[in-house]
Design a protein around this nucleic acid. Sequence first.
DNA 1: ACCTGAACACCGTTCAAGT
DNA 2: ACCTGAACACCGTTCAAGT
Lengths: 236, 236
Amino acid sequence: MAGTRRVGLTRERILRVALALVDEGGLGALSMRRLGAELGVDPMAVYRHLPHKRAIVLSLAEAVFAALPVPDPARPWEQRLRAWAGAYRALARAHPRLVLEVVGDPEAVGVAAVHANEPLYAALEDAALPPPEIVRCAGVVVDFLNGAVLAEAAAAIGAGGGAATPTGPVHPVAAPTGGGPGPAEDPVRAELARRPPGQFPVQRRVLARSADDGGDSFATGLDLIIAGIVARVPAR
Amino acid sequence: MAGTRRVGLTRERILRVALALVDEGGLGALSMRRLGAELGVDPMAVYRHLPHKRAIVLSLAEAVFAALPVPDPARPWEQRLRAWAGAYRALARAHPRLVLEVVGDPEAVGVAAVHANEPLYAALEDAALPPPEIVRCAGVVVDFLNGAVLAEAAAAIGAGGGAATPTGPVHPVAAPTGGGPGPAEDPVRAELARRPPGQFPVQRRVLARSADDGGDSFATGLDLIIAGIVARVPAR
DNA sequence: ACCTGAACACCGTTCAAGT
DNA sequence: ACCTGAACACCGTTCAAGT
């Protein structure tokens, strides 16, 4: 192989390292200086390959979402829809911090969704839904999945490791969020535990009478929505 | 009134001004220096009332979500659920940028959701659902609404005015995102327009055969989910 | 052609000082 | 008791200079 010379820096290598930084500590942990250090290069060298930090974030969103596996078109539409939803969920579990950042950023949402939506639209087209119904139903599926995946990502990171925490300067400052280091807790339960016991009686009552994990609203919601879509498929 | 002396600064006044800044330009537009300037006070004075910027964000989330109107408990549960969903949607339309920031921040989600969930749980309890079903169904409703509201907020702000744009230094730097100043466009359609016409044929085909607004997936999804919940209510 | 280093205009936060 | 100002450790980005 003639061309595999050690070339200092490539877009791909930058993005790979940037993704690792975001996966570890969110967007706050991705600074141009830190990125340069991790690459073993002057921080400014990155600008030769990507024009600004924003381009890094958008490229990350694109790379990760473009890699979503496309379900086998030979399978029936409902199975494809379920496979697609599962793949999206897996993506969010692999990169919860990236998902949390993308979801609040309209332009990143556009870049990510244009890749993610294509197999979804294809499955619904196969269901013989008329185009306006496809748009509506795809919207419902995507909205629900975004919400579900977001909730899981938030729980995975745990209250206190939020996206808005920019890791802060290295000052010896008391941790702002106080809560213990325990990861992977449901943000709502965590908040409830922090409050005086008289507040929010309905939630306390219901949660006390329910299993600890609260049931799988991902599976429940997906079943419920697919049943609703099936009911809208025109008779052949 | 004896006590209405002109006191320099209050938590309430700080939060009111901070909310205005976030509504205008997102979290990036809320800096302690800018906040101080807007309040006519030294930036550091704010620290007397709120310990750090993070506390401002969390207090904003709490204040806004605690103000969600509670539906009249005399009405039937389904009407209350619909009223509640409508109120949440209205909140997100009033403060899209805040919602976009909160949603990506697990701790803020906890603070916001603990307030928002209480009337929802109450409505589902009235539907005579068993507690584990309440938790599951509330999860489905909340996940869908978060996704739907998020999509609307992203469209309201418009691709390019994203939350991740920290307004930047005042350098004479070319706008990173390029797109025109046109607000209120669907991020996915915007992204599709930016791409070569051969990419994403299914989405282009379906969208071309569909009305321009793509239909109201908020109403569609809510109807679909409520129908699914009604089907789960045990017979009396 | 690609990388470097100093500089600029910002950040959040601390701390000693003022009134 | 409340506000101020200088300082510290960070940011993203520009630009002239090096190799």
